[in-house]
Amino acid sequence: MSYTAGGKTVEADEEGYLTNINEWNEDLAGEIAKAEQINMTAEHWEVVNFLREYYNEYQIAPAIRVLTKAITKKLGAEKASNKYLYELFPYGPAKQACKIAGLPKPTGCV
């Protein structure tokens, strides 16, 4: 499949993850979110940006428990609870938020 944003079309795999992470931009993230039926708010962006920072530092998308631990450290326990994250990303924070952030599917995510 593919996404189109700003007149540019970029490739994604059959599950909707970007083929090339370097093609990501914020407009594109909006398009991916739309396909996921998610209306991006500041809270969504906070998680997406967090994931991009994590990827930039470690070159992988974190497993969910690693993500919640890291968010607790940086943004506080409230924003790391499963309830909070699943309200933002109903089909799974690791999978959906990673997809919107342009990252590959998290390692260890079946």
Partner: peptide, 14 residues
């Protein structure tokens, strides 16, 4: 090739 050496630093988080 992708430089995956940075990922060793993520092990602590795991």
């Amino acid at each position: 090739m992708k430089n995956f050496s940075k990922t060793y630093r993520a092990l602590e988080g795991y």
